[in-house]
């Protein structure tokens, strides 16, 4: 079994409105030291066989739109 961890985030250049909302909420809770929040999604995908290469394909074919997303595959 291979478990891939695939993290999809918005590219730095793309405004992350969810991250901005979380940043604002944390500051309202009194955490003045929070400078930036970036949001994203993490997928844990279990394969019977395969490698990180399969994860890259998952990114290209479904999980990320390269116009706005970055997709990182870890195993």
């Amino acid at each position: 079994m291979v478990v891939l961890r695939i993290t999809v985030t918005l590219k730095k250049a793309v405004e992350d409105s969810e991250g901005s909302s979380v940043l604002k909420a944390l500051r309202l809770l009194g955490y003045d030291n929070v400078r930036e929040v970036r949001s994203g999604k993490v997928y844990f995908i279990t394969l019977t066989k395969g490698s990180k290469k399969a994860g890259k394909e998952f990114c290209e074919k479904l999980l990320a739109n390269p116009v706005i997303n970055e997709c990182v595959v870890d195993d």
Binding site: V14, S17, S21, N65, P66, V67, I68
Partner: peptide, 25 residues
């Protein structure tokens, strides 16, 4: 847009755009 039928400037059906989350969240 995800199918690249829009805007399809090159007629090669390559991804040229996305519809991102609203700025207002």
């Amino acid at each position: 847009v995800e199918l690249a039928l829009i805007p399809n400037l090159t007629k090669e059906y390559e991804l040229e755009a996305a519809l991102a989350p609203n700025m207002s969240n």
